[in-house]
Computed example of a mutant assay.
Amino acid sequence: MRGPFPHRLIEERPPQIGLIVLQTDESIEMDFRRLVPLETELFVTRVPSGTVVSPESLAEMEHHIAGAAALFPRSARFSAVAYGCTSGTAQIGAGEIAHLIRGATETRDVTEPLSALVAACRSLGIRRLGLLSPYVAPVSERLREVLGSHGIETPVFGSFEVAEEERVARIDGPSLRVAAEAVVRDADVDGLFLSCTNLRTLDEIEGLEARLGMPVLASNQVLAWRLMSLAGVTPVAGAPGVLFDTPAQAEAREAEA
Rank of each mutant, 00 (worst) to 15 (best):
R2G: 14
G3W: 13
G3N: 11
E11W: 04
E11P: 04
R13S: 13
P15V: 06
Q16S: 12
L19V: 00
I20L: 11
L22M: 13
Q23K: 14
S27A: 15
L35K: 09
V36D: 02
P37A: 03
L38A: 14
L38F: 11
T40C: 12
V44Q: 07
V47D: 01
S49K: 02
G50I: 06
G50N: 08
T51P: 01
S54V: 00
E62H: 04
H63N: 11
H64N: 08
G67R: 11
G67A: 10
A69C: 07
P73Q: 06
A76S: 11
A76R: 00
S79W: 02
S79T: 09
S79K: 15
A80V: 00
A82W: 05
A82P: 02
T86Y: 11
T86R: 07
S87D: 04
Q91W: 06
G95F: 00
E96M: 12
I97H: 05
A98N: 04
H99E: 14
L100I: 02
L100V: 09
E106Q: 14
D109F: 13
V110W: 00
E112M: 12
S115M: 12
S115K: 10
A119C: 03
A119R: 14
S123T: 12
L124G: 05
P134G: 09
Y135T: 04
S140Y: 05
V146H: 10
H150C: 11
H150V: 11
H150A: 14
T154G: 08
P155D: 07
P155A: 09
V156M: 09
G158Y: 06
G158H: 02
E161L: 13
E164F: 04
A169T: 01
P174R: 11
R177K: 10
V178Y: 08
A179G: 00
E181R: 15
R185G: 02
V189K: 10
D190E: 06
F193K: 01
L199Y: 05
E204Y: 06
I205A: 02
G207V: 01
L208P: 03
L208A: 04
E209M: 02
L212E: 05
G213H: 04
M214R: 13
S219A: 14
Q221F: 05
V222K: 09
L227R: 01
M228A: 03
S229E: 14
S229L: 05
G232D: 03
G232C: 08
V233G: 09
P235S: 00
V236N: 13
V236C: 10
G241P: 09
F244T: 05
D245E: 08
T246P: 05
A248C: 01
E251N: 13
E254Q: 12
A255L: 15
